[in-house]
Simulated assay, not measured.
Amino acid sequence: MAWWSALLLFLVTVVLMEGFAYAMHRWVMHGPGWFLHKSHHRARDGHWELNDLYAVIFAVPSVLMIYGALHYGWWPGFVWVGAGVAAYGMIYFGFHDVIVHRRIPTRYLPKGQYMKRIVQAHRLHHVVETREGNVSFGFIVAPKPEDLKAELKRRGRKGMRRSSVPDQMAPGHTAFAED
């Protein structure tokens, strides 16, 4: 496979993974997969939560594609698709687990407009503890926070958590500011 087509396949996979992640989060994790994901919308006790099993579940196709292409003669493009899935997983981990939820301590504070927007959008997603009534299911692309706040208000704030700062959010940040 030519290097430029491998690179293109890799990059397209990373981009398309945002749509896949949105769909999985919206219709699986907040649907039939809520039994695992609900642990992520509650205060975490310890380092792990049931929701972490999704990282393993989503890594399996990536590993299988790479392994199959390298060891069983599957289509060579599967190496790059699998690598793109893995790269998206690393981007997700860095953004979601390190920057937003601070599961690994860091001094990083979002300063750019884009980073502030996606961090706030994800925090607004977490003000709802139930599987219904949530907003912002993407990870790398997110609506404007003011639009998300308006949508939460329109929905009557159904299912919203009582405390202003959930345990899994960074200290000193409120997830929902009253208008």
Rank of each mutant, 00 (worst) to 15 (best):
M1C: 12
A2G: 12
A2D: 13
W3H: 10
W4C: 07
W4I: 13
W4Q: 13
S5N: 13
S5W: 15
A6D: 10
L9H: 05
F10H: 09
V12Q: 02
V12F: 04
T13Y: 04
M17D: 00
F20A: 14
Y22E: 09
Y22P: 02
M24S: 11
M24R: 10
R26F: 10
R26S: 06
V28L: 15
H30L: 03
H30W: 02
G31N: 11
G31S: 11
G31M: 11
P32E: 05
L36K: 09
L36R: 02
H40L: 02
H41N: 07
R42A: 14
R42N: 09
A43K: 07
D45T: 13
G46V: 00
G46Y: 00
H47Y: 14
W48A: 00
W48I: 00
F58E: 03
A59T: 11
V60Y: 07
V60N: 04
Y67A: 11
G68N: 06
A69C: 05
A69R: 00
H71R: 15
H71K: 15
G73K: 08
G73F: 11
P76M: 03
G77E: 02
G77M: 00
W80D: 00
V81M: 13
V81I: 15
V81H: 03
G82H: 03
G84S: 07
V85G: 03
A86W: 07
A86F: 08
A86Q: 03
A86Y: 06
Y88F: 14
Y88C: 03
Y88M: 07
G89Y: 07
M90F: 14
I91G: 03
Y92M: 10
Y92F: 14
F93C: 00
D97M: 03
D97C: 01
V98I: 15
I99C: 08
H101R: 10
R102H: 02
I104L: 02
P105G: 09
T106L: 03
Y108P: 04
P110H: 12
G112F: 09
Q113H: 14
Y114L: 07
Y114V: 08
K116P: 05
R117Q: 14
V119N: 01
A121D: 02
H122P: 04
H126M: 03
H126N: 04
V127K: 00
V128F: 00
E129C: 08
E129W: 10
T130D: 08
T130F: 12
E132T: 14
G133Y: 07
V135H: 01
F137W: 08
F137N: 05
G138H: 12
I140Q: 13
V141Q: 10
A142G: 00
P143G: 09
P143A: 15
E146M: 10
E146W: 12
A150E: 05
L152M: 01
R154D: 09
R154A: 15
R155W: 06
R157D: 10
G159E: 09
R161G: 07
R162T: 12
S163F: 09
S164M: 12
S164R: 14
S164P: 05
D167G: 05
Q168D: 10
Q168Y: 08
M169Y: 04
M169C: 02
M169A: 07
A170E: 13
A170V: 11
G172C: 06
G172R: 01
A175N: 12
A175H: 05
F176L: 15
F176E: 04
F176G: 06
A177Q: 12
A177R: 13
E178H: 11
D179S: 11
D179I: 08
